[in-house]
Design a protein around this nucleic acid. Structure first.
Lengths: 331, 331
DNA sequence: TGCCTTTTAAATATCGCTAAAGTAGAACGC
DNA sequence: GCGTTCTACTTTAGCGATATTTAAAAGGCA
């Protein structure tokens, strides 16, 4: 920038103003400067700009697992929404590890990201409480009852209800459930599952609910193991509602490996309606949460927070889930 | 930082030195400063530091598609390798669009990332040529013959050879090929495919090679459509080698939808050995490229470049592919 | 004691950019 | 012809850190 200014005999500020389309520059000067910029292939240093404006145009995205297609799709959509608005995304994939996540959030704050978008693996809100005082923040997917914060997610109880009622309507009598880690989504879906059962006067004997406290394995492996155990139950379940798609994928593998048929012997329903759900062993019935829509909403909300003049009261947006029926439950 | 200095009656520089474990600070002063830092929950502004040191500790990762699990897995591993070394990753998912990719690379350069890691969708190297003069750069997965640059990838011809020979050994006589976009990986794999055929004295009639110039659809959809066309050929192919796993997933769907059996009627082999390959319609035989290993290597190479004192001559690392046989080709 | 080295800390000068205030000179109003 | 308003810049003062230079105090040694 200094070079350009010197070459043209104008001040650095004039160049800076051209860069930012300030009004008080003559067309002539503007031309000259733009021309020279192009010649030198000049690109402003955004870090320096950020230092003085206090805006980095970077948002931090904190995820439990980037390889989980649900989050992958969400991240992708977010990043394209943000790009249009001049923002970039720094993504942290935290392996469902709360301690790790805390560290990563700290790092992102040190980088002075303009906002954070977090799908948190925390068990409690202790470490999340003071983020908002430092940086605008949108929570996604996983919510915390005792945290009044911006949130974009899905009505998890409705998800559980929808998936389980579908299995009931499909004629299943003994419906098992494979839940996820100890997070709001898994809890809400289990609640929905239980509600659906009791609504229809069904009561499962104990042992039909498998909940893995998160191991380090990804949820597909978890689901595989959990289903193997469920299949040993007598009487054997004839349907299983899984709190996410990778879990359901693992469960399907266990069922087929045991020589059983889907859906004739065991019907399967997942959650997330992940891309590729249609390409699985048996195309998977899944409760769709519109992960891309969620990503878009969260990204927009985050930008709004950043660009808002005054502080905005927290909003929670819940997307209504939809059932996508495929072969895994079509009896 | 200023606050801490003032509170303690020392200079800002002293505080800065404590932060960076400089030697010329007395134990006493160091203690005091550290204590106060903790009290104030102080975090250095990495952007400001970057401005003066010229290092952002951010690397840019440019991908064709983050949802493609191959790249997702790679990105995840990279980001965990980099985290250990204090770097973060800004990820751009460019939808296989060369123009888009160019813009994104420009943006990342403007952010003064310390290095770029690029799986490029460019058709030629015009726009890539001058990146290296600005910023260290590692290309991954897709290489360019006329660009002498750092590269981490796989021997694509070997990939094609391995996959196709396997189909031949499995007894397939009419082996079709579904290629990807016009990138080095697809080209190399096709070359391997052709080599394998000619080695065994096989010659396919025309029409057995389907190549989609990239549409905007993801490769699973592309693969589905391509396979539908291949199935109309007479005689019908009894094996298909796909240049990546999502394509193979789409192809399998087309085959099954047509009422045919895998592998009895048509055997399928993909490339990438993507996670979840084992959970598909028919577990997919795939040529493994160790995408996580690639990610790790590329990340380390990038850090080495950044931290190297002098300029390093470009290195190319090729990973040897391995075949993972599953049901889709087990005759 | 005096001179030199070492240790510890302070001062100064940037890094690349922008916000805010200041300043010529032209144009306008009456 | 004098104040007033505009226009098109320039000047000055940071943003929050670090690199480099300089200085004061302490210790070593003849």
């Amino acid at each position: 920038m200094k070079d350009i200014a010197q070459d043209l005999g104008v001040s650095v500020v004039t160049v800076s103003k051209v860069l930012r389309n300030h009004a008080d520059i003559s067309a002539e000067t503007r031309e000259k400067v733009l021309k020279r910029m192009k010649e030198l292939n000049y690109q402003p240093n955004l870090a320096a700009r950020g230092l003085v404006t206090g805006r980095s145009y970077i948002l931090g995205l904190v995820l439990p697992d980037l390889v989980h297609p649900f989050f992958g799709q969400m991240a992708k959509r977010m990043s394209s929404v943000l790009r249009e608005k001049g923002y970039h995304l720094v993504i942290s994939s935290c392996n469902e590890d709360p301690e790790f996540e805390r560290q990563e959030i700290g790092q992102l704050l040190a980088r002075r990201v303009d906002a954070l978008i977090i799908a948190s693996s925390q068990r409690n809100t202790d470490s999340l409480r003071d983020i908002e005082s430092q940086t605008p923040c949108v929570f996604i997917d996983r919510s915390f009852a005792d945290l009044s914060a911006n949130f974009v997610g899905v009505n998890d109880e409705a998800v559980g209800l929808l998936g389980t009622e579908h299995l009931i309507q499909a004629g299943c009598k003994l419906i098992a459930h494979i839940g996820g880690a100890e997070v709001s989504t898994a809890q809400g879906r289990m609640k929905g599952y239980e509600k659906a059962l009791s609504r229809h006067g069904l009561k499962m004997p104990p042992g039909y609910i498998a909940r893995r406290e998160r191991g380090d394995e990804a949820s597909d492996i978890t689901g595989f193991q959990a289903m193997q155990e469920l299949l040993r139950l007598i009487p054997r379940p004839d349907g299983v509602f899984c709190s996410n798609d990778p879990t359901a994928m693992g469960a399907m593998k266990a069922i087929l490996d045991a020589g059983l048929r889907i859906p004739e012997d065991v019907a399967v329903v997942g959650c997330g309606n992940v891309r590729y759900a249609d390409f699985l062993r048996v195309p998977l019935t899944s409760v769709d949460q519109d992960c891309e829509g969620m990503g878009e909403l969260a990204a927009k909300m985050a930008v709004d927070l950043v660009e808002a003049k005054r502080s905005v009261p927290p909003r929670a947006v819940l997307i209504e889930p939809k059932l996508v029926i495929r072969a895994s439950s079509r009896l």
